[in-house]
Amino acid sequence: MPRGMVVIDKERCKGCGLCIAACPQKVLAYSGQLNHSGYNVVHTEHPEACVGCTFCALTCPDIAIEVYREKVAA
């Protein structure tokens, strides 16, 4: 499995939690921190488990998530 990484734009996140439910690796969780709009934003609770599947980003209604994946040696 390649390693992945998600980058969440805290100011775009509305804390709906759809990404938390979509993540098969249980990487994401509520951070308990509020952004400027007052939403409890999502953060990467277990970043080491991320495989870069992009399910969270596909599900995010606010396009707040960017996904990176480790380069695989050719």
């Binding site: 990484m5 970043p47 991320c50 870069g52 396009i63 990176y68 480790e70």
Partner: peptide, 15 residues
């Protein structure tokens, strides 16, 4: 987890 973005390729971004 690799933190260096150079070793990572972006697979999902805003259209």
């Amino acid at each position: 987890m690799p933190t260096d973005l150079d070793s990572m390729v972006k697979v999902f971004s805003r259209p």
